[in-house]
Amino acid sequence: MRIPFVKMHGLGNDFIVLDARDGTLPALEATTVRALADRHQGIGCDQLIVLEPDKSATCRMRIYNQDGGEVEACGNAARAVGLLLGEPARIATAGGLIETRPDTAGIAVDMGEPRFEWDAIPLAYAMDTLTMPLGWEELEQPSAVNVGNPHIIFFVEDNDVVRLDQLGPLIEHDELFPERINVNVASVEDRATIRLRVWERGAGLTRACGTGACATAVTAMRRNLVDREVTVHLPGGPLTIAWGEDNRITMTGPATESFRGSFDWDDFA
């Protein structure tokens, strides 16, 4: 059985998109996700995206990381799917309903409202999530927020020197985070500019993370480090993040279709 796919990326965070809105895709196992995501023997991607029918939305977006685990949200994938749909859309995710629309700067995504309660992150026990009394080596006093998926954010003078490849997995798998966590290390340049690197749970270091940009921007705004609209510079490029008076986050940035193809399902099952 040959399955068509679209290869896309948002600022270098790349995806295999499978359109299963007609219900013809076989049941997806973690082993198949890992095989397709393999950059040497598969198609290669950071995340596998599956579009399914949904009665209350344009479609449902399911998101699988390289390790085969399913996650709740992905901002870059939302922009990619928004580009693929080509018109304003409502997209159901495990992290909630989001809306996308074409914009002069690419695709704008209404990412919904952030959650700051400790049990919404979730954490293993109660604590203040704005300034957490915790540290992992040089990374100290982080904040936590859920923007459809869980994030921890550290503000440092120079995020380029942080050994995120070593500290990222240590923090991701800490017992404090029962569903693991995405790790963000940010440097505030001025009231309108943030530099960000992200260790993404289940995927590792990534060139861009849309939900990480949203989580970091909102946290910087809560700490009064930046204004209510900022540019977040990731290794793959910039995203514009605005947090409105209605408490909703809007992320705007590019998405790109790389190529289309097909594969034999049995080769990866």
Score class of each variant (00 low, 15 high):
41 Q>I: 06
164 L>K: 13
201 R>S: 13
2 R>A: 11
219 T>L: 01
258 S>N: 11
133 P>C: 05
266 D>S: 14
127 M>C: 15
57 A>P: 08
5 F>C: 08
87 E>L: 09
111 M>N: 09
216 T>H: 03
141 Q>L: 14
75 G>D: 06
204 G>E: 10
88 P>G: 10
259 F>R: 08
114 P>W: 05
39 R>A: 07
175 E>N: 12
126 A>Q: 15
78 A>D: 06
169 P>S: 05
237 G>N: 03
113 E>Q: 13
85 L>R: 05
19 D>N: 07
61 M>C: 09
97 L>D: 11
68 G>H: 01
174 D>V: 08
1 M>K: 14
206 T>H: 02
147 V>S: 03
202 G>M: 00
147 V>H: 03
119 D>T: 09
67 D>R: 02
257 E>Q: 15
62 R>T: 13
260 R>L: 00
187 S>I: 11
113 E>C: 11
146 N>M: 05
67 D>W: 03
134 L>W: 15
213 A>C: 04
65 N>I: 08
234 L>C: 14
92 A>S: 15
79 R>F: 07
12 G>P: 10
84 L>M: 15
116 F>A: 10
163 R>S: 14
1 M>D: 12
138 E>N: 12
167 L>Q: 10
212 G>A: 07
14 D>F: 04
182 N>C: 07
135 G>A: 13
118 W>L: 04
51 L>E: 13
124 A>Q: 14
213 A>L: 04
119 D>Y: 13
110 D>Q: 00
35 A>N: 14
48 L>Y: 06
16 I>R: 01
87 E>H: 11
125 Y>R: 15
66 Q>N: 12
158 D>T: 12
8 M>N: 09
250 T>N: 02
78 A>G: 08
32 T>A: 14
266 D>F: 07
1 M>C: 09
29 E>V: 09
244 G>M: 03
20 A>T: 09
69 G>C: 08
120 A>I: 06
211 T>W: 00
78 A>E: 07
231 T>E: 13
89 A>K: 04
49 I>Y: 04
144 A>R: 06
211 T>E: 02
172 E>P: 00
35 A>D: 10
78 A>I: 06
239 L>H: 11
162 V>K: 04
157 E>H: 07
210 G>V: 06
191 R>H: 14
222 R>Q: 15
177 F>D: 09
130 L>D: 14
42 G>V: 10
110 D>I: 04
20 A>P: 01
254 P>Y: 00
105 A>Y: 07
131 T>W: 05
180 R>C: 04
149 N>K: 01
95 G>K: 03
229 E>Y: 02
11 L>M: 07
117 E>T: 13
157 E>A: 13
160 D>P: 00
50 V>H: 07
10 G>D: 08
